[in-house]
Design a protein around this nucleic acid. Structure first.
Lengths: 203, 203
DNA sequence: ATTAGAATCTAATGATGATTAGAAAAAAAT
DNA sequence: ATTTTTTTCTAATCATCATTAGATTCTAAT
């Protein structure tokens, strides 16, 4: 009823541990996978005991769902942010670069979260999949739109399957989370090279 | 000492169950991941009890090692087979198509094995990784050679990082195991499109 | 200081799972 | 038919783990 002023600080504190737990969970899920990660491990990383997790999350499954959900949100937001920087009437070339740069940025900057998404595709309870599907499909839809634009502009040749092209680009991008080391290429470099290869090939 | 004639049949029978177990293990590892798959599950699929597995394999880890080893062998052999079909002095273009076609064929035809490799990157005991590294590195070396050829022929432009290109191609190819349905594109189609995009871009 | 609520801990429960030793059954050899 | 060898099963061990209930500590407001 009257939780206006009173709850300001406590809520903040609670939210902080939630976030910490979420981060640690993402980190461990991405490194070892869903099943190999125990709640004890996650709790320990956050400086607490396994049982205490249940004050913040209803179950291991619920924890995973939040990690995956946040992961999709991060990717979606990052790409969205790049698109907004463009003119309203951006070309396919510009759009493609923005999408690739945004996707790579999200994948590589928040790799704990995003790698969790990529790695744990099959090893997660059905309920988890279901819970994340909407966001995933929405993001896919954005990419489809970009491909349609490319086709209409003639930037993608007519006989090239745009679904295939999209999956190639996403595959190449996602794979970067497997090998990327922050001491090598910059994300900007990566995005530029990827975009140019997909636009013009390796020649 | 004298096991010439006598062991012919028994060895064959034993080998058969070993292979069956290996297949079932690959299937389940690829679908649910290493940790989520119990020996009980694998044994049940092969019509036996968990304990009996130990007559054929020393441990769950050993089983996984064999699956991953076979997976790398399959990919390596399939690509090797495609290369042998070419003239000795094949061009980069021809080589690239053969590599991509071979890789995709292996990935998609033996997806139980190969998906296991791709999916379980992080979630497997260190010992397993170590055991498979040699074969993996050897295969990578083949790809590196092809890229070098491309550079020398001038088929890959000088300012394009050949490591990056290789990783893009492998990423795009590996990702196909996530979405490929045998009722859509043929593997031949896929390989042709992939090759053409990497050579000439989407335009 | 006292107290209500928030946050964490302890200790138990019930499952599941890899692994093993020895019994049993199946197949092959004598 | 009997013995050997191969293969599978049974039953137990030991470990780990998600989850829970109740006790405990911590925090912040009175």
């Amino acid at each position: 009823m009257d939780q206006h002023v009173t709850q300001l600080k406590p809520v903040l504190k609670k939210e902080k541990t939630r976030l910490l737990l979420l981060d640690k969970a993402a980190q461990m899920f991405s490194q070892r996978g869903y099943q190999s990660t125990s709640l004890k491990d996650i709790a320990a990383e956050a400086g607490m005991k396994a049982g205490s997790l249940y004050y913040h999350f209803a179950s291991k499954e619920a924890l995973m769902i939040e990690v995956l959900d946040k992961s999709m949100q991060l990717i979606s937001d990052t790409v969205g942010g790049e698109i907004e920087k463009l003119d309203d009437d951006f070309s396919f070339e510009e759009g493609l670069h923005a999408y690739i740069f945004g996707h790579l940025t999200a994948i590589l900057k928040h790799s704990d979260y995003t790698t969790t998404t990529i790695r744990n595709n099959g090893q997660v309870p059905e309920a988890v999949h279901k819970a994340v599907r909407v966001k995933r499909e929405h993001y896919e839809q954005q990419w489809r739109k970009l491909m349609r634009q490319g086709k209409e502009e003639g930037a993608i040749r007519a006989d090239l399957d745009e679904t295939l092209l999209r999956l190639m680009i996403l595959g190449a991008s996602n794979w970067s989370s497997v090998w990327f080391k922050s001491d090598g290429h910059s994300i900007e470099d990566l995005a530029r090279e990827y975009t140019s290869v997909f636009l013009k090939g390796c020649k």
